[in-house]
Design a protein around this nucleic acid. Structure first.
Lengths: 206, 206
DNA sequence: GAAGATCGATAACGTTGTTTTTTATTGGGA
DNA sequence: TCCCAATAAAAAACAACGTTATCGATCTTC
């Protein structure tokens, strides 16, 4: 319990953190390039030139890897949403919706980990769900701006953001599940998000 | 290639069909009672008192079992939707939406096979997707009735039914993924389906 | 410098989906 | 009636998976 001990513990911790990042990136690469099926402990281990044992000390098990990918996926989604810029709040909201769809269709395997249960045993705990929720803060902010500008009704942006999310998510989910074909998928997405916007614009009408 | 030969083949075919039904029911029981994780070829085989080999002759592999469960799930959903009766077309549509949600929340494991990709390797082929689409014919019929009664705009019920499905599905999917808590989940579902109804009522407004 | 602890690699275990081998059964011809 | 060929299921084997136990090696500390 000396100073050196603390330093050692810290150095090991940062080494472990570097290894953790490396493993997460390898796992993400595997996930994206070969799908959730290819995400095995052995493959991740060999991808970082290590054995499976270290993955168990760092992640605890496959659930830990899945959890890291879950958060990584929402982190990437947040980056994509934050990249959306538009002066008009309503335009921004529309573009956020389309960014959400694009993100899901592009990173299908990540989406599968995040919203389908692509890693058999795993389901996110409360903390990971909170991370997921926080990554949609951009959406909440945009709704707040639109409310402040008088473009959306109401004063609590959270439930409205959830409604918009559910709208976008519903169309995207059906599209990914194969129930909507290319042309109709985009139209369904547009119509449903527009419907959610319209409903949010006049909350007294519900 | 005699007549007897045909009879034998037929008798073997009906025996295989009976076995198939038995296996599907055992698999469904396993799926519902213990989740997608517990759905293994060995367990299904022992549940029907047979060996795994027969499952491979009947279903071809685990994908075949998953496909059978996929169709079975949509069949059960259809039965639930068809059980909804209401004189007023709009009331009927609302109750169909709630029946959809109830069905998803009740048979979560089936829902996982149908809309999440709970069986790792499997994804439905075109024929199975068609079966799935057909099971929502009740919804299309109800939309058609509402249009005929002048309660919904437009003349093509299919895209409107898809919109309503996407609305209900979006809220349910987020709820099942853990992103909506009990109280807010139902409210989000109600608001989104209401928004879809409202948008369908005046299609010129979009 | 030596004792002790800690961490990672190797190897093993149990289980999975799938395939191969073997065994039993069954229909058809001499 | 008896035997053979074909067929289907059972038993066993195989590769790969998640996970855990064993065993060196390295590194801190006295």
């Amino acid at each position: 319990m000396s100073v050196a001990d603390g330093a050692v513990r810290r150095s090991r911790a940062v080494a472990g953190e570097a290894l953790r990042r490396e493993a997460i990136e390898a796992a993400a690469e595997l996930l994206v390039s070969a799908g959730p099926q290819a995400l095995t402990m052995r493959r991740v281990a060999t991808a970082i030139g290590a054995s499976t044992t270290v993955l168990y000390t760092v992640f605890g098990g496959k659930d830990g890897v899945a959890d890291a990918l879950y958060r990584e996926g929402f982190e990437r989604l947040r980056a994509r949403l934050e990249a959306v810029v538009a002066a008009d709040p309503l335009v921004r909201l529309h573009e956020l919706a389309h960014a959400y769809r694009r993100s899901a269709l592009t990173d299908r395997s990540f989406y599968a980990v995040m919203f389908e249960r692509a890693v058999p045993g795993y389901e996110p705990g409360p903390e990971s769900l909170e991370v997921a929720r926080a990554s949609l803060a951009v959406l909440v902010d945009a709704v707040r701006d639109a409310m402040a500008a008088g473009l959306l009704g109401g004063d609590d942006p959270e439930p409205v953001a959830r409604l918009l999310h559910a709208a976008a998510h519903g169309a995207v989910s059906l599209e990914i599940s194969g129930h909507l074909e290319g042309e109709g998928a985009l139209r369904c997405f547009r119509e449903l998000t527009a419907a959610a916007f319209a409903a949010s614009a006049r909350p007294a009408a519900r």
